[in-house]
Design a binder for these strands. Structure first.
Lengths: 216, 216, 216, 216
DNA sequence: CATGAATGAGGTTTCATTCAT
DNA sequence: TATGAATGAAACCTCATTCAT
């Protein structure tokens, strides 16, 4: 049932395209993802049809399908972008582990993570909501990527424990806490933004965590 | 819309029914909701069509529509049940506020809430995922009900502050923390159940919160 | 595909019934037809479902099907009743043809026919609208019955021509005129009742016809 | 209802379309209406489903819905076309009122009207049968349009009365007669075409009316 | 005989995707 | 490369009819 036409498989992410021009595909996809994110986040994936998407993007339906294999592919690209950190993000933070205290690194991690959640404009909530609309394989990819955040945080915590700065009964659980409380800023933004600023939020949650694990 | 036909509005929840026999409607709806919850949670709301639902419930499509006005109504009933606490739940817990320490009451609240999340078999996650598929009015109803949990917790926290047992910079934020960390057990069950038991989870999260707010 | 169950064919009109008690069937059918007529005329045949019909009649859906073979049968019974004149109606009028002037008989015919249209509460319009929902055979039956009215009128006209009272280019056409102008009272009642009374209407239309055909 | 999607309202008739190309919409609609009229008139509105319609039109079901908002819209377009006269039709006829005798104008009106009924191939009957399947608002629109024909005729009659050419007890009633006898050609075509030609029909009915109202 | 809950085929409508232009 | 009209499968929902009680 595979399409025997001109379609090619772009190696990078396994998403089908008509075009072979890598740069063109990338730039067009950026347009598609940017606008689709807004519409999908606002209306929901299933509530948005290709026609709406097309007019929001300012690109014909046919054109969209030149740069993307399916509607689901767009969803995948959006969620993937929301979940993937820059390649150097974690290593940069972990790099400090040797020179700085774990407490400082953790604080930096939280600030950095929560700020990125804030800037990603509700895609954290969106990811919770729409990942299920992906096929199994993509779901796995996304969940693995998301798990990396927990693992990164866990690394920091473990180092702190090693160095005696932290005392933690269940390190992984605590890492999940850090991450989930970050997502909470996106998921409950409607309520939380009435209660406190992002700055307050970061400070409070940092204190919550540090207070629990610090040996000082 | 034009023709109103013979459908009636059952006062309790505003969901249309063909039958007028309250008890029958209630019992059939229970069947519908029970089985639908399983299927929806597993496959997702949009990924499940009425035929699948019908065979999962063991009831013909037509029969389902005798007890429920639309597919969306089923979703509403499921989410509503997941979000609504028993009428006396909060008042029972708050009742202890006069006779017991706030710390004890909070511990009891957390245990009770997290346990119910655990027993609700992933409907907490489901609620995050599918509430957007309800109409505006129903979304509001659900969000209001969900907000009550936060408010209940906040009451406990405030009392503790009053009594000098707690010191909290932002009471509402802390209440959100308590609730969200409860949902986390449902949302991340796949990971967390590998890390710790519900019992451990409750203890750890209780300690996280208490440790931060206790004046002792 | 014929039903091999207990169902019988009631000889009178070929409509299936569960019951064999002729009198019971007749009296129940009268109830059914009376109430159904009101609902169908008001809402239309397709816009009315069996549930509505059942509650309007005050008889359970199951019971209705004991006395009538299908929803379409009800429609047939209604239209048939609207179209069929009493067995003696025509013969009574025609009987006068020997003793009275054709003009008098025609006047009597018009008065009688138009009055019955008026009393039949819009079933003339209803017949125009819903006969198409009957099966071919029933449609034929109804149209034949309706044609009898024209034929009856034509008889009167022909007699008048014979006797030299009338001079008519096309007798059948004139008979159609008489009948259709009768139906017009039902079809356009909404407008006409604002313009004149039934009495006025009968007089005007009688004058229209007589004036054209009278040799005097 | 909830989500408005991308559908637009074409100003002309308030019927929803997916396409914005006015000319395309118009030409496609013409196809749709032409073929649908034939099928609907033959089988009836409710007896025809969209699949049958689609194959009769020679257009996929999906395509039909690009140019029309619903099945009912098609019905509306058909009936509307059957009921609406060209903008200049009435004024052209009435224009002669000053220069010509009312008798001549009335004759011209009848000929013109009856001929158009004849050419409209049974849509007059169809209108009687299916208008009830429209929503209330559309029904009103249609009935108002239909009333204009009566009014146009009444204008002619009134002028004739003014000028002393006609003597009429109830002008509006007589106008209704003219119109309804026109429809009769469509409604009873099956019988009438066996009795006389359209030409004969027009002459006979014209004589019927004129004979009654002329003062000569 | 009376009931009304149950059935499932069939209705209308939507929408992701294709492909001729 | 860009377009958007065309497609038709599949969705939700209704309703005439049956049959166990």
């Amino acid at each position: 049932m595979e399409n025997s036409k001109v379609r090619r498989i772009s190696k990078k992410d396994g998403i089908r395209t008509y075009s072979n021009d890598k740069d063109l595909v990338d730039s067009k996809r950026k347009e598609i993802i940017n606008e689709s994110t807004k519409v999908f986040v606002k209306k929901g994936y299933h509530q948005t049809n290709m026609r709406e998407l097309s007019s929001a993007i300012g690109m014909s339906v046919g054109s969209i399908y030149h740069y993307v294999g399916s509607k689901q592919d767009i969803l995948y690209l959006i969620i993937n972008e929301a979940v993937i950190r820059p390649d150097d993000w974690i290593s940069n933070i972990l790099a400090n582990l040797e020179t700085s205290t774990s407490t400082m690194v953790l604080k930096e991690f939280i600030r950095s993570y929560y700020t990125s959640v804030d800037q990603a404009q509700n895609t954290a909530l969106f990811t919770y909501q729409e990942t299920k609309n992906l096929d199994r394989k993509s779901q796995k990819t996304i969940m693995d990527a998301a798990a990396e955040d927990v693992e990164a945080c866990a690394k920091i915590l473990r180092k702190g424990v090693e160095k005696g700065e932290f005392k933690i009964a269940n390190t992984l659980l605590m890492a999940h806490n850090v991450i989930v409380l970050g997502h909470m800023w996106s998921v409950r933004r409607w309520y939380l933004s009435r209660i406190c600023s992002l700055e307050d939020y970061i400070e409070e949650q940092t204190a919550l965590i540090i207070n629990r694990i610090s040996t000082k």
